[in-house]
Design a protein around this nucleic acid. Structure first.
Length: 458
RNA sequence: GGAUGAAUAGCUCAAUGGUAGAGCUGCGGCUUGUUAAGCCGAUGGUUGUAGGUUCGAGCCCUUCUUCAUCCGCCA
């Protein structure tokens, strides 16, 4: 019987009228003992079910409460009211699952995100989380579609890994050894992992990019898209212990190709969500706008959600070097009037979010790609430039956030790579498998890394 | 990890050191083409925790906990 169900999304999108459907979903509100707003998660919009007065007995009527799961059968007709095009004139209503109104925490009104976090197990039932996760789904699907259409191979890199030399952050330990102090120890008192599940110390991955490179050296074009874990005690909206990261690796590309791919990719997935989740995005934009209004004037964001998305999709990204950016920042009135919390003194310092946002929002008024960063502030595997002090790295800067994508051309020359690793005190023996790729058919290549969760913050 | 701020009814918030209130939800009733329905009514509290100052503490001081914002780390 369940397979006869019609999804509310299909029903609302259709021009068809005067036909019988079966609807199943959860009650959002019950107005006037007569009008049920029901949602089944297929869309942010509710369907209005109309019950004739006297059609339901008092006992059933009382069970139609916010949160209750119901089945409704009836005819789709043009709505007699003003708020919706169609409504379901019910011929029967069945309660599938009761929801005690005195105990159900969700009320037919707006809740704060703080409160929703406390009832995290129920928050998918809200408009806000419904919209967020439908958008997130679209972005994830668009990622796969984008790369598949370009002939990339989707690679699953290990989640549990013994590789720990990437320096990307603190790691979560994975072990089956007892934690009560009885784990086997070496002579020096350290834990002996020979008896552990994998026979050695293992962690959750902080990045699959080095493994991704191995595959790119065979398939040419690959991407990873999977969970990543960082055990850092970070306390910002941009840092999670668990997030999904997208890392394309492309052989035979240089930094220029890298930038082109990244710009095309970003615009593609945003455009995809804008086309497929307009109602969800409109709802989120409206909710964000309401919250902005509560903030003091100075703290308000200059752009709304849709403006930010248009800003990224409709502008050619400005490309310049780190060195040029430092000059612009140093000479800016913002810097001279000491409005930056961290003033730009000279070449070599890492940029703060405030500097990145100044370049994007104030100076260029378009997304910005910075290239050729000082080697000292970037990772060992990035390709060293001929000037001897910069590397072929690039960061894409977005409005309101700052860095949203980081990428680089890889150092394909074994001697230079080894020298760099030595300077940064990275033991070559732990990365023998990585170094092998530079020995057997090395080639120019590039990589990007970006986190899906960041996009959900936009 | 650092700085700042916050914690009062189920939710969102008020309350000069002097009797803890409102709106909404939920509950009872009325109404019935409503749009977070409307009208009436009764409920609802050890003011995050543990101490201290005071005749008297939601308010002042100290401890702890949790959360938020910014910074750091990073994606």
């Amino acid at each position: 019987m369940f397979n006869k169900r019609t999804k509310i999304k299909e029903l609302l999108a259709s021009e068809k009228r005067n036909y019988e459907v079966t609807i199943m979903g959860w009650v959002r509100t019950f107005r006037n003992n007569q009008f049920i707003a029901i949602n089944d998660g297929s869309t942010n919009n509710n369907l209005q079910i109309v019950t004739a007065l006297g059609m339901l007995d008092d006992a059933t009527l009382k069970r139609i409460t916010t949160g209750a799961c119901i089945k409704a059968v009836g005819d789709i007709i043009p709505s007699l009211g003003k708020g919706q095009k169609v409504e379901l004139k019910a011929t029967s209503i069945e309660i599938l699952g009761d929801s005690d109104a005195e105990k159900f925490p969700l009320q037919p009104k707006k809740h704060s995100l703080e409160f929703l976090r406390e009832i995290a197990h129920l928050r998918f039932k809200t408009n806000t989380f419904g919209a967020i996760f439908r958008v997130r789904h679209s972005l994830a699907f668009a990622v796969h579609k984008f790369f598949n259409d370009k002939g990339f191979v989707y690679l699953h890199t290990p989640i549990i890994t013994a590789s720990d030399a990437e320096g990307a952050g603190e790691m979560f330990k994975v072990t089956t050894l007892p934690l009560d102090g009885t784990a086997p120890k070496n002579d020096d008192g350290s834990i002996n992992f020979k008896d552990d599940f994998f026979g050695r110390s293992t962690n959750l991955t902080v990045s699959g990019q080095l493994e991704g490179e191995l595959a790119a050296m065979a398939f040419s074009d690959i991407y990873t898209f999977g969970p990543t874990f960082r055990a850092e005690n970070s306390n910002t909206t941009r840092h999670l212990a668990e997030f999904w990261m997208i890392e394309p690796e492309v052989a035979f590309n240089d930094l220029e190709d890298n930038m082109n791919l990244a710009e095309e990719f970003i615009k593609y997935i945003i455009r995809y969500a804008m086309e497929n989740n307009k109602e969800d995005l409109d709802f989120l934009a409206q909710r964000l706008e309401e919250e902005e209004k509560l903030k003091p004037q100075n703290d308000r964001s200059e752009m709304g959600l849709m403006e930010k998305l248009d800003f990224v999709v409709n502008n050619d990204f400005e490309r310049l070097t780190y060195t040029e950016a430092i000059e612009i920042l140093k000479e800016s009135n913002h810097n001279k009037k000491k409005k930056f919390q961290y003033l730009i003194e000279g070449w070599g310092v890492d940029l703060q979010s405030e500097h990145e946002r100044y370049l994007v929002e104030k100076h260029f008024k378009k997304p910005v790609i910075l290239t050729d960063y000082p080697a000292a502030i970037k990772a060992f595997y990035m390709r060293q430039n001929d000037d001897g002090k910069t590397v072929a790295a690039m960061d894409i800067l977005a409005p309101g956030i700052g860095e949203i994508v980081g990428g680089s051309q890889r150092e394909e020359r074994l001697d230079k790579l080894l020298k760099r690793m030595e300077e940064m005190h990275i033991p070559a023996e732990e990365l023998h498998w990585y170094l092998d790729t530079r020995k057997f058919g090395s080639c120019p290549m590039q990589v990007l890394a970006l986190a899906l969760s960041d996009w959900c913050n936009l």
